[in-house]
Computed example of a mutant assay.
Amino acid sequence: MPALRTTLLFVTLFPETFYVLASTLSSEGNKGNPVFLAVSGGKLCLYCEMDKKKGRPTLQLKKKDISQLHASNTTDLKGFTFYRKKMSKCWNTLESAAHQGWFISTCHVNEHVRMTDKPGTQELVDFAFVPVSSAHTGPSEVSE
């Protein structure tokens, strides 16, 4: 199944082209639709893992092709899975399946996205997905 190209608008940041693919994990209750997320032409996947030093989940980029996650022998698909929940007509939240209650967030211009367990404070967790007909290379794209 091909990944859907979409621009994920981080409210205070420049738009970034993301690739979105339905996850093979089942949805839990009212969490939303489980999805995989990737950048760099679908070759770098977002992954949420526990940072043992900090004692909190962190967001990582793993060199893995999003289209291969369905057939992957990766035992920890939960780390690659985020629950995309529609909050309003165009806004969504992205909650980690591996670390429930932790959301992808941003706060200030030119800061990296990160994970938070305090949505709605200074952390912005609402994102808009805008389908694009042809993805272009963005500032974070990797060239070989």
Rank of each mutant, 00 (worst) to 15 (best):
M1T: 01
P2W: 00
A3H: 04
L4H: 08
T7N: 12
T7Y: 05
E16F: 03
E16L: 00
V20W: 04
V20I: 15
L21K: 15
A22P: 08
T24F: 02
N30T: 02
N30W: 01
N30L: 11
G32M: 03
L37V: 14
V39W: 03
S40G: 05
G41I: 10
L46C: 10
Y47E: 01
E49P: 00
M50P: 07
M50V: 13
D51N: 15
K52F: 00
K53N: 06
K54L: 14
G55M: 01
R56P: 01
L61C: 11
K64V: 14
K64E: 15
I66P: 04
Q68R: 13
A71C: 10
T75M: 11
T75C: 09
T75L: 12
T75Q: 14
D76W: 09
L77K: 15
K78A: 11
K85E: 00
C90F: 05
C90Y: 07
N92Y: 15
T93H: 06
T93Q: 03
T93D: 01
L94I: 07
E95Q: 10
S96Q: 07
A97Q: 07
A97W: 07
A98Y: 04
H99L: 01
Q100D: 06
W102N: 04
F103Q: 02
I104V: 13
S105H: 10
T106S: 11
T106F: 12
V109D: 08
E111Y: 11
E111I: 06
V113I: 08
V113N: 09
V113A: 12
R114P: 09
T116C: 04
D117W: 03
T121I: 04
T121E: 15
E123V: 01
V125R: 03
V125K: 01
A128I: 12
S133L: 11
S134E: 05
H136Q: 11
S140C: 08
E144I: 00
